[in-house]
């Protein structure tokens, strides 16, 4: 069902398969070489597993400069050629403000406020409440509340 690809060296970003979707969580300060390796890893994983979607979670990324922005756009473009849709999830407000002033608005890249919304955008059923969690706990996000 889900599995991680082996991490051959430090700074490797794991690409997780969740059903029909790849979940990639970027964290902290990425080296340029790590970001370039990630592009290849994702393209390979999309082709190998024939997934229909890729979620790039960047909620743990403090800055996106034009290099990383280009990498994200290229990941989406390559996944698109391999018949998978990409959603960029969890961008921090400060990063969004900076990207626009930098002149990088990443047109054509779908976004969501968090990973859950991104999964729903890709047609994955995500349960509203986590089993065992307190019901009705406030969840961040902007999708409409569905009645049970």
């Amino acid at each position: 069902m889900s599995g991680a690809f082996p991490a051959p060296y430090g700074g490797h970003v794991p690409v997780l398969k969740l059903g029909d979707v790849l979940l990639v969580t970027l964290q902290g300060d990425l080296h340029d070489s790590t970001a370039e390796q990630l592009q290849q890893d994702i393209s390979q994983a999309v082709a190998d597993h024939a997934v229909s979607g890729v979620v790039l979670d960047i909620s743990g990324v403090e800055i996106v400069d034009s290099f990383l922005g280009r990498v994200l756009a290229e990941i989406a473009a390559k996944a698109g050629l391999l018949a998978a849709r990409t959603v960029l999830a969890g961008m921090r407000p400060a990063v969004a403000i900076t990207l626009v002033e930098l002149g990088l608005t990443l047109p054509g890249l779908r976004t969501a406020l968090n990973t859950e919304d991104a999964m729903r955008l890709l047609g994955v059923e995500v349960p509203r409440s986590i089993p065992g969690a307190a019901p009705g706990s406030p969840r961040p996000g902007r999708t409409r509340q569905e009645s049970p």
Partner: peptide, 30 residues
């Protein structure tokens, strides 16, 4: 990037100011 962020934080820059400055530093350093 790490040094500029720490320096900006130490001078009391806000989060958005820090993010802009670190991004600019990253562009120029590259």
């Amino acid at each position: 990037r790490q040094h500029v962020r720490q320096a900006a934080a130490q001078l009391g820059f806000g989060l958005v100011e820090q993010t802009k400055l670190v991004t600019a530093a990253s562009e120029l350093a590259r």
